[in-house]
C-alpha cells in the first residue's frame, strides 16, 4: 500500500520514472521500477505520516559494513524544521508563518497537478505516448527526474534503491562506515572498465 499516493498515482509515477531511468536487460540496469523509485517519492510526500517524520535517517552506520544498524532511527525534527519541511512538502497553504517571503507551492500539489496532466491512463499507453505526455509537462518531468535520481542512488532507507541495486549497477559501494577503505584501496589503481 502506498503511503500518500493512491494506487493509480503510484503506478503512474513508477511508469513515468521508468521512462526516465529505464530497465535495460543487456547492461543489467535495474531501472526505476525495480529500484522502487516510486516508493522513494511516496515516502517523501508522506514523510509526516511517520513519527519521527522520514526526513533525516539516523546514524552513524547502516549496519551493512559492520556496527549496529542506525539508519532506521529517524531523527526528530524541531518545530522550526517541521515548519520548513511541511512547507516544502505540503505548501504554505496561507499560513503566515510559512509565507513570510510569499506563498510556496508544495511538492504534494506539484505532483497532484502534474499527475492529472499525465492522465489516469498513463500506465496503459505506449512508451512513445508516455514520452510525449512527459515532454508536455516539462516542470513535472524535471522534478520527477530529480526524485528518480535520488530514489535510484540514495540510501535504501529512504524507500528507493531497493536492495542497493542502483549502487550495484554503477559499482558504487554506498556508505562504507565503519569499515571504510584501507590505505591500499585508496592509493592503488581502480578496477578496469
Amino acid at each position: 500500500m502506498p503511503i500518500w499516493f493512491d494506487e493509480n498515482d503510484y503506478e503512474t509515477v513508477a511508469a513515468a520514472c521508468e521512462r526516465l531511468i529505464p530497465r535495460d536487460e543487456a547492461s543489467g540496469a535495474p531501472g526505476a521500477t525495480a529500484a522502487e523509485v516510486a516508493r522513494y517519492v511516496d515516502q517523501l510526500l508522506g514523510a509526516f505520516t511517520f513519527d519521527p517524520p522520514r526526513i533525516w535517517a539516523g546514524g552513524p552506520f547502516s549496519g551493512r559494513h559492520g556496527g549496529d544498524a542506525g539508519f532506521e532511527n529517524w531523527i526528530r525534527l524541531r518545530p522550526l524544521d517541521e515548519r520548513a519541511w511541511r512547507t516544502r512538502i505540503e505548501g504554505s497553504r496561507g499560513d503566515p508563518e510559512r509565507e513570510r517571503n510569499g506563498p510556496v507551492i508544495g511538492l504534494q500539489e506539484r505532483y497532484r497537478s502534474g499527475l492529472v496532466a499525465l492522465g489516469r491512463d498513463f500506465v496503459s499507453v505506449d512508451g512513445t505516448e508516455q514520452d510525449r505526455r512527459l515532454d508536455a509537462v516539462a516542470e513535472l518531468k524535471a522534478m520527477l527526474y530529480e526524485h528518480a535520481c535520488e530514489g535510484m542512488y540514495g540510501d535504501p532507507v529512504y524507500g528507493g534503491n531497493a536492495g542497493g541495486c542502483g549502487w550495484a549497477f554503477i559499482q558504487f559501494d554506498g556508505d562504507m562506515q565503519p569499515r571504510g577503505y584501507t590505505d591500499a584501496e585508496v592509493e592503488e589503481a581502480g578496477g578496469a572498465s
Binding site: 526526513i55 533525516w56 535517517a57 539516523g58 546514524g59 552513524p60 552506520f61 547502516s62 542506525g70 539508519f71 531523527i75 522550526l80 524544521d81 515548519r83 520548513a84 512547507t87 516544502r88 517571503n101 510556496v104 535520488e150 542512488y153 540514495g154 540510501d155 529512504y158 554506498g174 556508505d175 562504507m176 562506515q177
Partner: peptide
Amino acid sequence: GDYSNDELKFLYRHFLGPDPLLEP
C-alpha cells in the same frame, strides 16, 4: 552518532542547516 554516509541527508535535505526556507 547522528552523522552518517548519507548523500540525501547532507546534500539535499539540509540536515546541518540552515534550511533556505527558514533562513534565506
